[in-house]
Amino acid sequence: MDHFTHLIHSVRDRLYRLALRVVNDADEAQDVVQDVLVKSWNKREEIARLDNPPAWLMRMTQHQAIDRLRAGQVRSAREREAAGPDLDPRTPYRLAASSDSLSHIHRIIQQLPTDQRTVLHLREVEGMEYREIAEVTRLSPEQVKVYLHRGRTRLRTLLRQENIA
């Protein structure tokens, strides 16, 4: 149990950041981490035998967050359908509302596809090697490299379009 507690303490922030990156909502991210912790507690003996328990927890968090994101998107789609057409997310009003450059960049990153966003996050925020990212995302290291390249290129393009860079 001490081993498990130590493991959770060491990765909890990383799990939360990853969940937050995917679902982009603090409460939802907390729920994701909570779900992961409960499930991992039930499998703690199995986890203890793994070669890389943090990678397993990160992978589980990613899956859980994507599931929650999809459920939320389905819900949002139904709500949008019920509420009528929404505003373009890049309207001048919304740009002005998020004038701070960091929140602007955050919004741009959130426009990236989930896989690219996740790979970028694991590299830029968590400082993980390609091999480690591949282990979490179940992509090959080559795919990770491609996703990272595409993500950064896309980010550069979007930043230029938004006149930030």
Partner: peptide, 18 residues
């Protein structure tokens, strides 16, 4: 003009779970 991007990643690394 690239500085905000790296500032963003640095800030994101400081986020901790409540």
């Amino acid at each position: 003009h690239y500085a905000p991007l790296f500032a963003y990643w640095t800030a994101a690394s400081d986020v901790t779970a409540p």
